[in-house]
Design a protein around this nucleic acid. Structure first.
Length: 553
RNA sequence: GGGCGAUUAGCUCAGAUGGAUAGAGCGUUGGCCUCCGAAGCCAAAGGCCCUGGGUUCGAGUCCCAGAUCGCCCA
């Protein structure tokens, strides 16, 4: 509906320009929005006020002229008026609203999809935690946000790939192998002083036990041979665990990309040579520097250390080159907010590779404060004491976990209270929307029992839906596709939970005011059609979030 | 010391590209099941949108300065 109104306004403004009743100027983006006050119409536009400055004329006069030139050929408008300082208020005919419901029913589970992506290839890279230990609660938020961003982009017509980058080439992997080795020695009764820099978690000892069970004391006196083996064993095993945990959360990747591959193929060395030849890399004091300052970074960055060892950043350069080489038009990285300092250098990097700044999108995810009944749950990664994804999912369930992670803007801190997340009560927002869906299903079951058929689009007296609450419900159902589009463009998944919450609220109000199933058969059919559409939208929206829409609860 | 983000109701937070009387959930107070699911609804109370300047018809939103908190970098 919004798009139709914008189109009407555009045509009218163009007509005015042609007639000369408006002066030639750049026409700004025309905005139409839902006014808070019902008296201000169903939709309103401020276009006359925006034009006023350039036209050097009173907004109300401009608005009058725009209205005079509107050609409502589809007859969707009941009334248009100029109000306040120069708003144009639209009042929509009931018949036009009802037509929107038919669209929802016709599209079914595809309602809300769009093609703003036009099939362009996007990669969303997220989680990407080193396989040195199980994922904890902080990773879970990034996992869900990345997954849902990918899903929203898919629904918006992008061709999306979900990828997990495994930083398995650095020193911390050796440290992992060493950690397991020391625990292994301990198993055989050797007294070792376990270094503080090693990984402390209980899972390390468990891995050592597994190795001891399978291989006995084979590695006891062969530290040289043991560490590479144990590194690989541990990383493989931990990664398997990570995959399982992500799956319980409903997160599945298209690809796990190993940093090691980049070194095996010499990609890192090759790209560094290329950039050096192109003048982006210079040597100073035995180390190689990337001139990221050329692209606005605050200082240049080291890519190869004095000892010849490439930095993480070097690997990241090669990795991003690799991404674009695979044909992705745009690459989106979901990072912990503590990585925000990396953004300028990565943007510099992709520009040196010949891409535009916009081809890299970064979504920062802030910390999660884990609480239990309002009290912070103590955590320390160093001591290996933390709450894992698995523990959280097992305790509160996938739906509640995902919904709670998605409810806040990703760039703001999140308090995650285990007690609230698992409470089956009104405190827990996920139940509010699921309840609305279950209620709709329940009403429809009830209607069927009383001999009604669930109506499909076509011959339904939708003109009977004239109550304010029905009006409001149709209106909010109608905005769903715009919400998804906006969410995709801004990479802001939290807009969806907010939307569903609003929709559920409008539905509940409608429910409490009006009886769906009554002895008026035509009205009952029309209302069944309305709540059916509402159910479709709740289901589609929850599906975007990876949250179930139960029929009973 | 430099940079990034935050600051909106008692609490947790929404308010994209500036618009009409600033919203939601929780909490508080008071109502609503003889009736399709009360995990719901309705009503009320609750605000210096951190402070001070600026931009303009119009600022929670944009600009500048400062305060407080969090993080990154040396």
């Amino acid at each position: 509906m919004k798009k139709k109104l914008i189109e009407l306004l555009e045509k009218s403004v163009n007509a005015c320009l042609k007639k000369g009743t408006l002066k030639e100027m750049d026409i700004p983006f025309i905005e139409v929005e839902l006014p808070r006050e019902g008296a201000h119409g169903d939709w309103a536009s401020n276009i006359a006020m925006v034009l006023a400055k350039g036209q050097r004329e009173a907004p109300r006069k401009i608005a009058e002229r725009i209205i005079d030139n509107i050609n409502d050929s589809d007859e969707i408008l009941d009334k248009i008026e100029v109000a306040g300082p120069g708003f144009i208020n639209f009042f929509i005919k009931t018949s036009a609203w009802a037509a929107l419901l038919e669209e929802v029913d016709e599209l079914g589970d595809r309602y809300g999809e769009s093609n703003i992506g036009k099939g362009s290839k996007v990669q969303v890279e997220f989680v990407s935690a080193n396989p040195t230990g199980p994922l904890h609660i902080g990773h879970a938020r990034g996992a869900v946000i990345g997954d849902v961003i990918a899903g929203i982009l898919q629904a918006s017509g992008f061709s999306v790939s979900r990828e997990y980058y495994i930083n398995d080439a650095g020193n911390q992997m050796n440290m992992l192998g060493e950690s397991v080795y020391y625990r292994y020695l301990e198993l055989m009764g050797e007294k070792v002083s376990f270094p503080e820099t090693c990984y402390q978690g209980e899972y390390i000892a468990e891995l050592a036990r597994q190795i001891h069970d399978s291989f006995g004391d084979k590695f006891r006196s062969d530290k040289e041979g043991a560490i590479p083996f144990m590194t690989q064993y541990a990383a493989g095993s931990i990664l398997e665990g990570i995959k399982e945990d992500l799956e319980t959360l409903g997160v599945v990747f298209d690809r796990y990309f190993s940093e090691n591959e980049l070194y095996k193929n010499d990609d890192v060395a090759k790209i560094l040579q290329r950039l050096q030849k192109e003048g982006f890399i210079y040597e100073e004091g035995g180390t190689l520097w990337f001139k990221t300052t050329d692209f606005g970074d605050e200082k240049d960055r080291v890519v190869v250390r004095e000892n010849g060892e490439p930095t993480y950043f070097a690997g990241d350069i090669a990795y991003h080159l690799n991404k674009y080489a695979r044909g992705f038009d745009r690459v989106i990285n979901v990072w912990g907010a503590d990585h925000h300092g990396y953004i300028p250098r990565m943007q510099a990097c992709i520009q040196a590779l010949g891409r535009k700044k916009e081809d890299l999108g970064v979504v920062l995810v802030q910390l999660v404060n884990l609480l239990r009944g309002g009290v912070p749950v103590p955590m320390s990664t160093r001591a290996g004491k933390f709450v894992t994804i698995r523990e959280v999912t097992d305790e509160v369930g996938r739906d509640a976990a995902r919904y709670n992670f998605l409810m806040r803007r990703s760039n703001s801190h999140l308090d995650f209270d285990l007690e609230i997340a698992k409470a089956q009560s009104s405190e827990n927002p996920v139940y509010y929307v699921q309840y609305a869906h279950a209620r709709i299903c329940s009403i429809m079951r009830n209607a069927v029992e009383q001999g009604y058929r669930i109506p499909a689009y076509g011959d339904i007296r939708l003109d009977l839906l004239t109550a304010t609450e029905e009006h409001e419900l149709i209106k909010i159902i109608d905005t769903f596709p715009e919400i998804v589009e906006g969410s995709a463009q801004a990479l802001e998944p939290h807009r969806i939970p907010y939307y569903i919450n609003d929709l559920a609220s409008v539905f509940h109000s409608f429910y409490n005011k009006h009886k769906v199933v009554s002895d008026n058969a035509e009205l009952t059919t029309a209302r069944l059609f309305l709540i059916k559409a509402a159910g479709i939208v709740i289901r589609n929206a929850l599906k975007l979030l990876g949250v179930s829409a139960p029929e009973r609860m």
